[in-house]
């Protein structure tokens, strides 16, 4: 039964875009760190400054990354959608989340125990290299889109002039 459960999670992992084409042997190994989770609308997957001990592969529903600002309430930094990954701060010290992650609607996801995954990556650099190669494009893409949004491209010219 336990093996069947692990197999099914391995299949879910392999079906997620993050792990597309993953060696089935590695998928089986990573499945030991994974489980299926569900969040009701409005629930928090994690909150800023909490330990980044679990990250999520979204399978259904949307998630908002938020920042609380006194006087302005919750500001949405980015939204994440099925096929995307929620959380990257688990990769590097100090392993703390930078933002809150809130389920916009009902969310289905596969969670991965970060300490478990890091241990497997440390134990087998081949796995670690594969995982890092999959995560680096996500981090790079988020950096690039953040840079573009910093430009405030849709701002009226007068406001751009004031900023400059």
């Amino acid at each position: 039964m336990a093996e069947g459960k692990l197999k099914s999670i391995a299949d879910l992992l392999a079906a997620h875009p993050l792990f597309a084409g993953l060696d089935p042997a590695i998928a089986d190994l990573l499945a030991g760190c994974a489980r299926n989770v569900h969040f009701a609308a409005g629930a928090y997957l994690f909150q800023a400054d909490d330990a980044a001990d679990t990250f999520y592969l979204l399978r259904g529903g949307d998630v908002a990354l938020e920042l609380r600002m006194p006087g302005r309430g919750r500001l949405t930094v980015q939204t994440l959608h099925p096929g995307e990954v929620v959380g990257a701060s688990w990769i590097l010290p100090p392993y703390r989340w930078r933002f809150d992650a809130r389920a916009i609607g009902d969310v289905r996801a596969t969670s991965l125990d970060a300490a478990c995954l890091r241990a497997k990556c440390d134990a087998d650099p081949r796995i670690g290299y594969d995982v890092m190669k999959r995560f680096l494009p996500i981090v790079a893409e988020r950096l690039q889109t953040t840079r573009l949004r910093l430009l405030d491209l849709y701002a009226p010219p007068a406001e751009v002039g004031r900023q400059l």
Binding site: D62, R74, L75, T79, R149
Partner: peptide
């Protein structure tokens, strides 16, 4: 999608 939003926006935030 929008570049910036408060939490009452139910849509996408991004490019």
């Amino acid at each position: 999608t929008v570049d910036r939003a408060t939490a009452d926006w139910q849509g996408r935030v991004g490019l």
